[in-house]
């Protein structure tokens, strides 16, 4: 496909005619969540359905993106199509931002309102009086019920700081790779792109060890009151996004090796790069509000 005539970038907006992938995707999603629902209700079929659904989902992504890549390399997309993809990606990232905003909001609410109120501050003085224990409104906390028992937190300037450095570094490497792509220096591109996702995976690995650390040495669990409730979902959802981003980077890298993209025509690369910067920024928020302050 790569050597398809490069001049047919047509004036017409390319409209595909029928595609099996979306419906496959819908079925996959349905199977996955249906299975998950059964799993949570202890129906034996649950785990199997989830596995099947996820497999189908992966198959769908491969197929769908495969088609898009081929069309793109076949130069069926003109500037307008390219712009649609860019805008689409940006708005998708915006929706992701809002998803995290929800969880950051929960953290903020807990720290600024519910915990102080439980401590009897402001208008909720009686909440503490009536409960009649000596709960101190302070952060970190697992609440007046001491849910999950005594725990300690992960010090910000240990692993988390290192992870911050790693992600920031990966932000630099991907930028270098991008410039290289623009300048047509494929070697540099391939090298720094590889570096980027390697850093990404390293980050995920360190996060995993940090979790083990938390569970084994800090008695810090998902069920450790509001602290655990905010700490784990926030960091886990972020970790999940890093993993996804890294996988997308690998795909883009393989395409680079295959000689895809031109200095002017490389939406996939840029889309993933934006995504990568987004997870980067989210992490900074996490480092400051979850680990540090």
């Amino acid at each position: 496909m790569a050597h398809a005539p490069t001049t047919t970038a047509s004036d017409k907006y390319y409209v595909p005619h029928g595609s099996p992938w979306p419906i496959i995707g819908s079925v996959a999603l349905f199977t996955t969540v249906g299975g998950a629902a059964m799993w949570l209700n202890h129906v034996n079929a649950g785990p199997w359905l989830v596995t099947a659904g996820l497999a189908l989902l992966i198959f769908m992504f491969i197929g769908w993106f495969g088609v898009v890549i081929r069309e793109s390399e076949g130069r069926l997309y003109n500037e307008a199509v390219d712009r649609s993809f860019r805008m689409g990606m940006m708005w998708f990232i915006f929706s992701e931002v809002m998803f995290f905003a929800g969880f950051f909001g929960a953290l903020l609410y807990a720290r600024q309102f519910s915990v102080p109120w439980l401590g009897g501050e402001g208008t909720k003085l009686l909440t503490a009086v009536v409960r009649g224990d000596n709960f101190e409104a302070a952060w970190p906390t697992n609440g007046p019920g001491q849910i999950g028992g005594e725990f300690t937190t992960i010090p910000a300037f240990g692993l988390p700081a290192i992870n911050t450095a790693i992600l920031l570094a990966s932000g630099v490497t991907i930028t270098i790779a991008h410039h290289a792509l623009r300048a047509g220096q494929r070697q540099v591109l391939n090298l720094f792109l590889a570096l980027t996702f390697l850093l990404g995976f390293l980050f995920v690995y360190l996060q995993a060890t940090e979790y083990i650390e938390a569970y084994t040495h800090h008695n810090l669990k998902l069920s450790t009151g509001i602290y655990g409730s905010t700490f784990f979902p926030l960091t886990a959802f972020h970790g999940f996004h890093v993993t996804m981003g890294a996988i997308m980077l690998v795909v883009v890298w393989l395409r680079c090796l295959k000689g895809h993209f031109t200095p002017t025509h490389h939406f996939a690369f840029e889309g993933v790069a934006w995504y990568w910067h987004f997870v980067d920024v989210v992490w900074l928020g996490l480092f400051i509000f979850v680990y540090w302050l």
């Binding site: 849910i147 998902l222 009151g225 409730s229 979902p233």
Partner: peptide, 24 residues
């Protein structure tokens, strides 16, 4: 999602005992 984790995975977003708040 928070409802789900509160129900099945022991988080306490919306439970006062753990420092959360139903009103959240």
């Amino acid at each position: 999602t928070m409802l789900l984790t509160d129900h099945y995975f022991g988080t306490t977003f919306f439970e006062a005992a753990g420092g959360g708040d139903p009103v959240m």
